[in-house]
Design a protein around this nucleic acid. Structure first.
Lengths: 110, 110
DNA sequence: ATATCGTACAACCAAATGGTTGTAGATCAG
DNA sequence: CTGATCTACAACCATTTGGTTGTACGATAT
């Protein structure tokens, strides 16, 4: 289905976004406190543009929001993306538990 | 720290592995039933070698195990990787909840 | 013994990723 | 107004990724 396709690429972006330690660190920080993009850039040993790109990746993945304030762009954590990722992994955990239960049933049948 | 570095690249591999719909599908399937690599390959519209590579990525991320049986290689789900990914996201959720609680406290103070 | 099956692996390719520098447009401070 | 600051974005580069085909080799079946 087409809808599923959208959901899949959404998940691609989500997990892709998490697959970088700098980005994971950014997510952690902006969950606690808001930062400007340059405020974030000051934290890492890379160029402003590089951090800017990381923030863009996180924004596309709904893990972060940006809001203009004066000449700054304020970055904040976005619970939405995190929840979706957790929801998917919980589903997988569910499948795993069902399998464990099934195996337990089979063992009990003998 | 060096240990942290190892942990970070481990997480990189984990989330990178999840960032592909074919690989997510493989993880789901091999959690329910075991498959040979060629058995998996038959399911997707891509070459055997491509699926083989996907399985290798999942194995490196501890999301799957391979075991030789005769001329086949049996692929099974590995709970270890999934647990680590869930654990990390739970940590992030925890940070989020602390923030929410802090905000609630501030509002209550007035 | 020979052909077939399942796997591994190398070589190759196009596209994406993660980084850089440079340029330009807003916004703010003096 | 001028200069400094914050951001956006383009162009470029090396490496990785996700795919391909082809070759080789052990295990199985006839």
């Amino acid at each position: 289905m087409v809808v599923d396709q959208l959901r899949e690429t959404e998940l691609d972006r989500l997990f892709q976004a998490f697959a970088d330690s700098t980005r994971r660190d950014i997510v952690r920080r902006v969950t606690v406190t808001e930062y400007s993009v340059s405020g974030l850039a000051a934290l890492y040993a890379m160029s402003f543009a590089a951090v800017q790109k990381h923030v863009a990746v996180l924004e596309r993945a709904s893990l972060v929001t940006k809001e203009k304030r004066g000449r700054e762009q304020i970055v904040r954590g976005n619970h939405e993306g995190l929840q979706k990722a957790r929801w998917l992994l919980d589903e997988y955990e569910q499948v795993w538990r069902q399998r464990a239960a099934r195996i337990a049933d089979i063992l009990a049948e003998e």
